[in-house]
Design a binder for these strands. Structure first.
Lengths: 172, 172
DNA sequence: CCTATCATGTAATCCGTTACATGATTAT
DNA sequence: ATAATCATGTAACGGATTACATGATAGG
């Protein structure tokens, strides 16, 4: 029987799962968690429980295939289907407008929070992130897909913007 | 009877409502919608229906007070309570770590989307936003609260970073 | 051998999104 | 008058978050 693709709207989370599955043969939810943590998780995060629920929904809709490990923990292992690849490609080429900067500290400043202390906490994070990103960048051997490194560049640009902004506020 | 503050965890949306209510005597959900649209909505958005549901929950928890307009449409009108102000202040002074950059176009690039066309669509938006922000900035007479203008500066810095990044990709 | 941390997963709750609906006002 | 847009709101559903739980592994 044909899988029911009408039940499930695809969300960004869906495409993150499909995206990673398109890059490898198979993956368990835990594998996905690891992948997300060191990559897109840096600018688009969600709890790991989603990585158990989401592939299940995608499987119900026919975008991924599920199998069980034999023996041991019998973990669920997912792989992308042809329909999944198709959905991913369609989404990928569709242009997008805006973006959002979800920064709780900025919200606090907006509503009257004292800038200097907020800025100091914020800067610490931002500087650490920037260092982390620049360390990652040195690992670019040109082997991995281009998009991964491009988005790293975006992260670096924004981290710098962030540091510029919060530095001004930290100065009192 | 004492309001039940245990039922309701406060989310960023809650604080946005509390924040605006703290700046004026009263507001209807529609007023809030207008306020959000021209300010925080630029970096932290959500559908207007939340601005009907959220004050209700806050009222149940005692953070805001609800009254009904007499005559006409009998709209709901909200105002912040002392407990609400307290909650807002506590939140405001608590430092925050990171932030998120929720950019669907960047996700697409990460997962192999063709950069150039995505960049072109994206740049259009980013440039328009930057202009809008800079126009807004000229309206700073020093009357409104400081935080509003500070966060506008943040928006400008990030918009510029964004333009730098996507310009590189648009160049092919 | 004990304890801490990693690995792996499930369940319940609820916020946020989507969709719908209707009155008022303005433009043509 | 009619269409279009703004103003104002409600209902349902589902994805996301929170919380909990247990088995493996490594360090001391």
């Amino acid at each position: 029987m044909a899988p029911d693709q009408s039940v499930t709207r695809l969300t960004p989370t869906s495409y993150i799962v499909l995206g990673f599955l398109s890059m490898r043969e198979e993956a368990t939810p835990y594998d996905l968690k690891q992948l997300v943590a060191v990559s897109v998780g840096n600018f688009w995060s969600f709890p790991h429980s989603q990585l158990y629920a989401e592939p299940e929904r995608l499987a119900a809709a026919g975008y991924v295939r599920e199998r069980r490990e034999q023996g041991g923990r019998r973990r669920r292992v997912y792989s992308i289907t042809q329909a999944g690849r198709k959905a991913l490609e369609t989404w990928r080429e569709e242009p997008e407008g805006g973006y959002e900067l979800r920064d709780p500290a900025l919200l606090k400043v907006f509503f009257g929070g004292d800038p200097a202390p907020l800025a100091r906490a914020r800067l610490e994070h931002a500087r650490a992130k920037l260092e982390e990103y620049e360390a990652l960048r040195t690992g670019d051997t040109g082997e991995e897909p281009r998009g991964i490194w491009l988005s790293l560049e975006a992260g670096i640009e924004h981290a710098k913007a962030d540091i510029r902004f919060w530095s001004k506020l930290a100065a009192d």
